[in-house]
């Protein structure tokens, strides 16, 4: 990546600069006084960019999907967190399972998950996706939790969870993402 110093782009995941360059300190040749330089390890940078553009798959199967829709629309505006909806799994990082999963739907859920590119995350929104919810006891065709089908990162309780709760779930996921180690011996 060839940095255009005038626009202060953050450095890529290459080797970090040798010495910290504090803003306003004597600039090295080529970096004007306008330069904004960020220093950190590569993990920080990668995780930061991942958490800030969580494109989610609009996977609204039932009632919770309406709350998901409203959370993405005028009042709650989830775009603020970099989370925008995508209609296809191939462009999404996050699968927001919002609603009841039935046995007829089960293999579709799995297939959609498999179609998503790595790294991928799953948020299970609402009691139905968590455990089967109100249909746990008496229904013959509801899957008792989406975690029987795919791995889940964050569970959001509620029937349906309020948009605030959903946003909280997304922020929890962002925290999880920030803790991830991508480079180094154990990666």
């Amino acid at each position: 990546m060839s940095p255009d110093p005038a626009h202060g782009q953050p450095p890529g995941p290459g080797p970090p600069p040798a010495a910290p360059l504090a803003h306003g300190s004597a600039p090295s040749p080529g970096l004007g006084p306008e330069a904004h330089v960020m220093v950190g390890n590569a993990d920080l940078f990668v995780n930061w960019s991942r958490k800030s553009s969580l494109w989610y798959l609009l996977f609204a199967t039932a009632c919770c999907g309406i709350e998901l829709m409203q959370a993405g629309a005028s009042r709650y505006d989830m775009d603020r967190f970099g989370a925008v909806f995508r209609a296809t799994p191939r462009q999404s990082d996050l699968m927001l399972v919002a609603g009841t999963i039935t046995h007829k739907m089960a293999d579709r859920v799995k297939r959609l998950y498999d179609q998503m590119p790595e790294p991928k995350y799953v948020i299970s929104m609402g009691s139905c996706a968590n455990t089967g919810g109100p249909f746990y006891k008496d229904s013959y065709c509801v899957v008792k939790g989406v975690d029987l089908l795919i791995p889940v990162d964050v569970y959001i309780p509620g029937c349906p969870p309020r948009p605030e709760a959903l946003i909280d779930g997304i922020m929890s996921l962002q925290k999880i993402i920030m803790r991830k180690k991508n480079f180094g011996a154990k990666a």
């Binding site: 046995h103 089960a106 013959y140």
Partner: peptide, 13 residues
């Protein structure tokens, strides 16, 4: 007289 099945396609009902 319907009996709920135990499994469907390997997933617990």
């Amino acid at each position: 007289d319907y009996k709920y099945p135990d499994f469907y396609h390997g997933i617990k009902v």
